[in-house]
């Protein structure tokens, strides 16, 4: 076993897939000699060469489009967005071309688009975004969002091996904050489409993913300590397709649900999750399905403002208390 960060786990996963399968290649801005803005691909160009670690022009649509063409031809491209905020420049390629390729033309398009997401880092409105909701609405794409180091590794490997296009969202607030013991010399794979029970409890369920998974766990511990509440926490890990079975299992176990995400409220994933619970487990509920999310504003830069807009541990604690008492 060795202790690795979330970032290092992701890096290892990518590295291992490059070693295992020579169809895998990386393309993106400054991924070569610089090793990527956050150093996820540090050392890759030295090991795998410039042909498999391609520094591209600042052209996100071309990066994703070229990845799609290569994927059709049997390659396994992994495209990096320097910050996930710039994936909007490739929105057309992803939603119109990539997502529909199999359905309309039977074209396999096994590619991964990955990049750093999220706030809590004083990045301002264009270096803090969460983009899952923008793609969640598009059949044909898969979306994964690891919260742990193990899943950072397990999901990148599974994404590379998946036969469909996967958007792999990695949280930059977790990059170096999260550390975990991972086995050496043993394959770490996280199946796409499976949520993970991060904490067991019987009083209330919190459903979350990404950075707020950790804030939810922190809240759960505080609630156990201060209120004697046993809070269950479900880490979704894959956002598209959602793991309905795992969601309903926890609902039926605790009968109360709080959905927590860092993305803004309106049109965020919590709405869809709540609708599914309503359809599939309504009679099991002992309270309303509640949401803790970001406020519906662009993410501001000043620490006081960012802290106000984003959901904090204290918000989760208060919301859970309210729901527990319902």
């Amino acid at each position: 076993m060795a202790e690795v960060t979330y970032l290092e786990a992701l890096r290892q996963g990518l590295w291992e897939e490059m070693e295992r399968d020579d169809r895998v290649f990386i393309l993106g801005e400054d991924v070569g000699i610089y090793g990527g803005a956050f150093k996820v691909t540090e050392g890759f160009v030295k090991r795998f060469g410039e042909a498999r670690v391609i520094d591209t022009p600042i052209s996100e649509a071309a990066i994703v489009g070229a990845a799609a063409g290569a994927a059709h031809m049997g390659m396994r491209p992994v495209a990096e967005m320097q910050f996930i905020d710039f994936i909007s420049c490739a929105y057309d390629m992803l939603t119109n071309y990539v997502a529909t390729a199999r359905y309309r033309a039977g074209l396999p398009t096994p590619l991964v688009v990955r990049g750093p997401c999220g706030g809590y880092v004083r990045g301002g409105p264009f270096h803090s975004q969460n983009v899952e909701a923008a793609f969640f609405h598009t059949p044909g794409l898969k979306i994964v969002y690891p919260a742990t180091a193990r899943d950072a590794k397990g999901l990148i490997k599974a994404s590379v091996r998946d036969d469909d296009p996967v958007i792999y969202l990695e949280h930059k607030w977790l990059y170096r904050r999260i550390k975990e013991q991972l086995p050496e010399g043993e394959e770490v794979l996280t199946p796409i489409g499976e949520a993970r029970l991060a904490r067991e409890g019987r009083d209330l369920s919190i459903i979350s993913y990404g950075a707020t998974l950790w804030k939810s766990l922190e809240a759960a511990e505080q609630l156990e300590r201060d209120d004697g509440l046993a809070v269950e926490v479900l880490d979704l890990r894959t956002l598209l397709p959602l793991d309905d079975a795992a969601i309903m299992r926890t609902v039926k176990h605790t009968n109360k649900v709080l959905i927590v995400h860092e993305d803004t409220r309106t049109g965020g994933l919590a709405g869809e999750i709540a609708a599914r619970i309503n359809e599939q487990a309504f009679e099991w509920l002992d309270g309303p399905i509640m949401r803790v999310t970001a406020h519906d504003v662009p993410l501001p830069y000043a620490p006081t403002l960012e802290d106000y807009v984003l959901p904090q541990t204290d918000d989760i604690v208060k919301a859970a208390r309210w729901l527990a008492a319902y």
Binding site: R265, M290, V292, T293, H295, D296, V297, P298, P300, L305, Y308, V309, P311, D315, K318, A319, W322
Partner: peptide, 18 residues
């Protein structure tokens, strides 16, 4: 002060329930 002026109208975004 994070909440006002997302739109001209409404003048301010909703402060969330929690």
């Amino acid at each position: 002060s994070a909440l006002p002026a997302v739109y001209a109208s409404p003048a301010t975004a909703e402060r969330l329930w929690f």
